[in-house]
Amino acid sequence: MTDTTFTTAPQATAPKRRIRWGRIADHAVLIAGSLFMLVPLLIVMQTTTVPDAEIIKHGPQLKIGNALPDNFNKAMFEASGFSGENTGVRMLLNSFILGIGFAVGKIALGMIAAYALVYFRLRFATAAFWLIFTTLLLPLEVRILPSYEVVQKLGMLNTYQGLIIPLVASATATFFFRQFFRSVPEELVEAARIDGAGPVRFFIDILVPLSRTMIAAMFIIMFVFGWNQYLWPTMITTDEGMYTLVRGIKQITQVLEGASLPEYGRSNLLALIAILPPVFIVIFFQSWFVKGLTESDK
């Protein structure tokens, strides 16, 4: 109520529109920010439309060329390495397998761990939780050598299991699901008990459906995180057929030998393609996420 009187009063007394410097400053900051984010992307887009030689000669320009179909063909269907296996399509597939496997694995494991921690009287539940939590202090980069050794000894190099399994243990997911489960009303658990739902049934019939907004949110974060993995795939996969997009793009511009030119157009186009799935995932799941939040299911 007070808000409306406050905003309408100045309009009534001063019919002339005043320049609001605060608003202009706000917009200037926003426009500058979006340009800062967009211009590099636009430059990359431009380079995908002209032949590579022109990029080398002139650098980035304003003109849009006609080499896009050619570049697209090369990017998606031509292999860049020796074995002929790492086509764009193949790398895209590998990236999807990594991203989805990574996200699904993390969510499944995190949910099960959180379920055990919240709903069962375990003797060392709190200690276990903090132990899991402290692993946040040990990201992959810290333990990459021992992790590599384990994967290598298990003979999982150049496999999808080797790529995904060592990464699925997740303190973040466990923590978020734990907090969420603790907010589920106690009576719901009791009602389910009286309704004869055992632990497994309660988890599948009640907890998982209730968590779907949480799952969507975690999926966004984890998929993008998995999709963007670079260091780990670089170490685990040496077989070109196992390359992910993020890793394979670098390979393309690296071929600088003799008279051949770095294929900027092709690699930049792949980089753009690599951006798309995370963008679509975010857009798609966000609508879900908001719907779930506003429905106030709990």
Binding site: E190, A191, G196
Partner: peptide, 28 residues
């Protein structure tokens, strides 16, 4: 509790929010 053949009505109803009314009633 499930084997005592009792039914309980809670203060906050404790309905399963993701199930329809029919499913809620039939779950047990």
């Amino acid at each position: 509790p499930a084997d005592r053949n009792i039914a309980m009505v809670f203060q906050n109803y404790a309905l399963y929010p993701h199930m329809t009314v029919a499913k809620n009633m039939g779950y047990g």
